[in-house]
Amino acid sequence: MTTILDAVEVPTPKRPWNKKRQTFIRSAILMSISLVFSWLLSSTTELGGVLGFYLGLAVCLPVVVLIESIRHGRNVAIDRVASSVILAMFGVVVIPWISIVTTVYQKGSKAFYWGYLTTDMRFTASGESLEFGGALHAIVGTLVMVLIASLISVPLGITAAIYIVEIKGRFASSVRFFTQAMSGVPSIVAGLFIYSTICIFFGGFSAWAGALAYTILMLPTVARTSEEVLKLVPDELRAASYALGASQARTVFQVVLPTIATGLVTSAILGIARVAGETAPLLLTASYFVATSRNLNEPIASLPIYIFSNLGLGDANATTRAWGGSLVLLIVVFVLFSVARGLSARLSRK
């Protein structure tokens, strides 16, 4: 078959609207000019130090950009100044973040050796040399409890959201009210609640109790974000499905939920983020145990409590172990998020 392509020479596809390279060069030049100015400013005036330098930059950058872009007209100038202000603000926000990560890395990496991830503290005292013992028990404990809590609260939270948005049942407004109220519950109260209902009557501290305390905190977050995401699905989509003779259940499970799969993963991530670093709810429920737990009915270690108990000892080695635990916790949360993100990317590509 002959098509038009046989007759014309095909040029290379271009994206003239994509001005990344130019923009990059221009921004680099402007940025260096502003850097020089803010350095001059901080070295010649009272505004000394790193903070003064950043402050100078936050002022210089927009001014330099403004001067540069004035010749392009008002709109372009406003646009560029606004972007540079946002960039400066972004820097301000990122600085504490970088500082936290590097501090945790510097102090935490001292506790690291391969065995840190493969041994627990069964045979090691907290003050002992850093060549012995590790955080395996805490890592396993955190993962187990987050997993159980997710398995309970993600389906339950999504179901609650479906009840509110799709089914619009008789108790929809009261369910919404209670999830909203629950999202304000302080985490220690969640722990206390599980302690007074589960721990007292069912044999004391256990991994189950810790997971349930986590669940109380996760559930409202998952339910509320899922509800918001469900509300974004246009009614036309539901109408299209109903017009094909689908039942409400089929419509929800085969049309609505797949459409917002990415959003639901996000709601699960937010739920995990809410609990992964919580210490308070575990103090009264899961407690702490130095060996890697094989029994969910017994107390179990977790990273936050591991950090907490090691810090409390005041010993130098124990403190270093606590920093190591913090680093592991950061990494665990990061890995959980990356996995969830990758999952949602795959879901949305389909």
């Binding site: 040029p11 290379t12 596809p13 271009k14 994206r15 003239p16 609207w17 994509n18």
Partner: peptide, 9 residues
């Protein structure tokens, strides 16, 4: 250009 991955010549 609002369509991701669109190109022109």
């Amino acid at each position: 250009e609002f369509i991701p991955k669109a190109a022109m010549a």
